[in-house]
Write a protein that binds this DNA or RNA. Structure first.
Lengths: 151, 151
DNA sequence: ATCTAAATAGGAATAATTCTTGATAAGGAC
DNA sequence: GTCCTTATCAAGAATTATTCCTATTTAGAT
């Protein structure tokens, strides 16, 4: 029982449940994503993981991210044509992308609301998933005196 | 006044309004997108436009698409990490991507509904735009006896 | 300790898009 | 109409993110 870390335990179980192994690389990638909840890109994950596992390759980071998302431990966030980002929040939520500071904020679903209530489906569509992203200016950047961004 | 075509006129005006020219290439690209409302990719547009302007290059198609979206005549549709698609529907709407037949369907906003009502914004976010995409199976594909897709 | 399949590192390959550059063309000044 | 300026174009090179390939390593089972 020697100080078991709470979430890693469950992740181990999930991975083993799929007949896969929790390797150092996978754990390090998972810990990076759980650690800073700032939606890093694969390259950002790579950079951070290197401090723990200096020999890891970018390809392995991509592999680990695939495995983790395949197991449902991490979610991929796509926004326009930018690099994919990774998110540890498994609750249903949307994302806000600040055009000024590039920060990504999670937007939880309001209680009792469903995305299907807002758009009209012309027929019997079977919804498997959805992705919602807002862009604009976040509170922090709105407050600032315009931030020398444009120009 | 000799038989003015309805939408092209407005597009011309919009483009001229920005100090740009309505060239053969731009018109051809615009007409392709307005013609078949099936959300083609840049390469698909390129292929179709070639029948009208056989010397056009893919780079020019990309340039024209940029110009048209910049003028607000066409909208870009991003879905996961796939090629961008282009859409002539300027009304606020979401998209449904059928995983079986790859068709993209426009989903109009229900009246008096707003996407902001569904997700919670933790602070004063200034929303400039949003993109919403659903994936799953469209009515046509749901009806079929499973379609030999997987496998 | 040995064996087998999974996983990794590293680099090559791919796909979509953007950039660069010299040539072409359109609209306005004269 | 001719000249000039600037926008636009075509073609291919370059870039970026991601995936693929393969020999080597490793974990877990026997």
């Amino acid at each position: 029982m020697a100080t078991p870390s709470n979430h890693t335990q469950t992740a181990d179980e999930t991975i083993h449940g799929r007949g896969l192994r929790m390797t150092d690389q996978r754990r390090a990638v998972y810990d990076v994503i759980m650690g800073e909840r700032d939606h890093p890109t694969a390259v950002e994950v790579f950079t951070r993981v290197r401090s723990k596992v200096p020999t890891i390759s970018l390809a392995t980071v991509y592999n680990c991210l695939d495995t983790l998302t395949g197991c449902g431990l991490v979610k991929t966030v796509a926004h326009e044509r930018e690099s994919a980002r990774y998110c540890p929040n498994l609750e249903e939520h949307a994302h806000f992308f600040c055009e000024a500071c590039k920060a990504v904020t999670d937007l939880p679903l309001r209680s009792r609301k469903k995305p299907e209530d807002v758009w009209e489906f012309p027929g019997e569509f079977a919804i498997a998933s959805h992705e919602v992203s807002f862009s604009g200016t976040c509170p922090k950047c709105s407050a600032k005196p315009a931030k020398s961004n444009k120009r």
